[in-house]
């Protein structure tokens, strides 16, 4: 183990009132920031994916329309699915780095300190 042993689960549960933390403004901000990003984003990409699946399944003629040479709308939409997956991934990472991680780290530091003092 390292030099500074992190607080154990029991020590933390004894020292921290998690209901109070849950109600705190700082945690509510974190919770709201997290949910207001991940839930709408999950709904949006699922809708976009199923739109693509339904088009490929039921709109054969539309998807078969050639655009550039032999590349048709179906292939472009499929490649766009891959592109949006990469895009959402990068967007979430930058959002989490800027808007979530600093708040989470603050709360974590505070709680570990409280536990340490209570030992």
């Amino acid at each position: 183990m390292g030099q500074d042993t992190p607080p154990t689960e029991e020590e933390m549960e004894a020292a921290v009132d998690f209901r109070e933390v849950q109600r705190s403004e700082q945690f509510q901000t974190l919770r709201k920031r997290h949910r207001s990003f991940v839930i709408p984003m999950a709904v949006a990409f699922l809708l976009w994916y199923f739109l693509y699946v339904l088009l490929a399944d039921y709109a054969h003629d539309f998807m078969s329309t050639p655009v550039i040479g032999n590349i048709n709308i179906g292939l472009i939409l499929g490649l766009l699915q891959i592109a949006t997956t990469f895009g959402i991934t990068m967007w979430y990472v930058s959002y989490a780095n800027k808007r979530l991680d600093p708040v989470a780290a603050d709360i974590r530091r505070d709680l570990e300190q409280i536990t340490e003092e209570n030992k």
Binding site: M12, L30, L100, A104, L111
Partner: peptide, 15 residues
């Protein structure tokens, strides 16, 4: 209480 602990831990990584 456990619910509060789980929610706080899941988002902050404390503990």
């Amino acid at each position: 209480v456990k619910q509060a602990e789980m929610e706080v831990r899941s988002l902050t990584g404390v503990g």
